[in-house]
C-alpha cells in the first residue's frame, strides 16, 4: 500500500510546489481545503440548504418546483402549544413527546457514553494481555446493523426472553420489559450505549496516544495517585480529543434513531419515540410524506443542537484555560 502512496504523493508535490510559489504558504491553506470544500459544498452543504426550502413549502410533492410556498406555517404548526411542558396541549403532540423523550435520552445516553467509553479506552490503553482481542470485543457491536442489534436484544428482553429466563431461574420476579414505558426507555438508552460505545472508545484510544509517555514517567517518579494523574495529566492533554467525543456524542445522541426504532418502534405508545423517528415517520415512512413538517422539525432540532454545542465548547474551553 505504502509503495503506491509514496510515488503518488511525490507526483502531487510538483503542482503543489508551484502553487506554493505563486500563492505563498499562507494562501496554500485554501488549496489544501479545496477538494474537501468542493465535495462538502455540493453533497453536504447544498442538501442542508435545500432542506430550508422544503421547510418553507407544503404538500406531499417531492420535487421542490412542485411545492407551494407556505412561509413559516410548518414552524408555526410545530410550535403551536398552550404549554411546551405538556405535549397534549400541542397541535403536533407527537413532536413534543419526541422532544421530551429526546432530552431525557441525551442526558442519560451522553453521560453513560462518555463515562464508559473513557473507562474502556483507559483500560484498553494499559499494558494488558490480548489487547487486540479486547479492543475488537468492544468494537464488535458498532459493526452490526441496527436491525440485527434490535433482534438480539429482543431475544434477550422480550416477555419470554433470555433475561427473564435467567431471573426466573434464580427465583426473581420477571418483568415484561418491552411493555413498561420506563424500562423500555432505560433499555433503549442501554442498547444505544452498547451499540455505539466502541466508536468513541476508538477515538479516545487514538487520542491517548498523543500524550507523550515521558509525562507519565515524571508523574510516576512523584508517586502521584492514579486519579491525580488522570485529572492533572491525562484529561487536559486529551482535551482536543475529548472535544470531538463530547460534540459528536451530543450530536449523534440527539440523532439516535435506527436501533431504538428497530427495537421498540418508539413504544410502548410513544415512550421511546425520539425526535428523529418523528422526522422519519412524517417525511419518509409517512403517507402522505410531510416533507415540509419533517424539514422544519429538523431545523428546530439543529438550532437547539447548535446552542447546546456552543455551550459545550464554551465550557470545555473555559475548563481547558482554567
Amino acid at each position: 500500500m505504502l509503495s503506491l502512496i509514496t510515488p503518488l504523493m511525490q507526483i502531487i508535490e510538483w503542482p503543489m510546489r508551484a502553487l506554493q510559489r505563486i500563492l505563498g504558504p499562507r494562501k496554500l491553506a485554501w488549496v489544501f481545503l479545496l477538494p474537501n470544500l468542493f465535495l462538502f459544498g455540493f453533497f453536504t452543504f447544498l442538501p442542508v440548504i435545500l432542506n430550508f426550502f422544503y421547510a418553507t413549502t407544503g404538500s406531499d410533492h417531492i420535487l421542490l418546483e412542485d411545492r407551494p410556498y407556505v412561509g413559516m406555517r410548518n414552524f408555526d404548526e410545530l410550535m403551536n402549544c398552550t404549554s411546551y411542558l405538556d405535549p397534549n396541549s400541542c397541535q403536533i403532540d407527537l413532536f413534543w413527546r419526541a422532544v421530551h423523550n429526546t432530552l431525557w435520552f441525551i442526558v442519560l445516553q451522553v453521560g453513560f457514553m462518555v463515562f464508559f467509553s473513557m473507562t474502556t479506552a483507559l483500560i484498553l490503553n494499559r499494558k494488558i494481555r490480548a489487547r487486540g482481542f479486547f479492543r475488537a470485543v468492544f468494537f464488535f457491536p458498532v459493526l452490526l446493523s441496527p436491525v440485527v442489534v434490535a433482534l438480539v436484544w429482543k431475544w434477550i428482553l422480550q416477555d419470554q426472553g433470555a433475561l427473564n429466563a435467567v431471573l426466573d431461574h434464580f427465583g426473581l420476579q420477571t418483568v415484561n420489559w418491552m411493555l413498561s414505558p420506563t424500562w423500555a426507555f432505560a433499555w433503549s438508552v442501554f442498547i444505544s450505549v452498547w451499540f455505539h460505545m466502541g466508536f468513541y472508545t476508538l477515538i479516545l484510544l487514538a487520542g491517548l496516544q498523543s500524550i507523550p509517555r515521558d509525562v507519565y514517567e515524571a508523574a510516576a517518579m512523584d508517586a502521584a495517585s492514579p486519579w491525580r494523574v488522570f485529572r492533572k495529566i491525562t484529561l487536559p492533554l486529551l482535551m482536543p480529543t475529548m472535544v470531538v467525543v463530547l460534540v459528536l456524542s451530543l450530536i449523534k445522541g440527539v440523532q439516535t434513531f435506527d436501533e431504538v426504532y428497530a427495537f421498540t418502534g418508539g413504544g410502548p405508545g410513544s415512550a421511546t419515540t425520539l425526535v428523529i423517528q418523528f422526522i422519519y415517520q412524517n417525511g419518509f415512512a409517512g403517507a402522505p410524506r410531510l416533507f415540509g413538517l419533517a424539514s422544519a422539525a429538523s431545523i428546530l432540532v439543529a438550532i437547539v443542537l447548535i446552542a447546546l454545542t456552543a455551550v459545550q465548547l464554551w465550557i470545555t474551553r473555559r475548563n481547558a484555560n482554567g
Partner: peptide, 14 residues
C-alpha cells in the same frame, strides 16, 4: 396479547 400493539410505538408493524 398486549405485546403486539402496546409493545411497539409509532407506525411500526408487529
Amino acid at each position: 396479547d398486549r405485546n403486539v400493539w402496546a409493545g411497539q410505538g409509532g407506525t411500526s408493524y408487529a
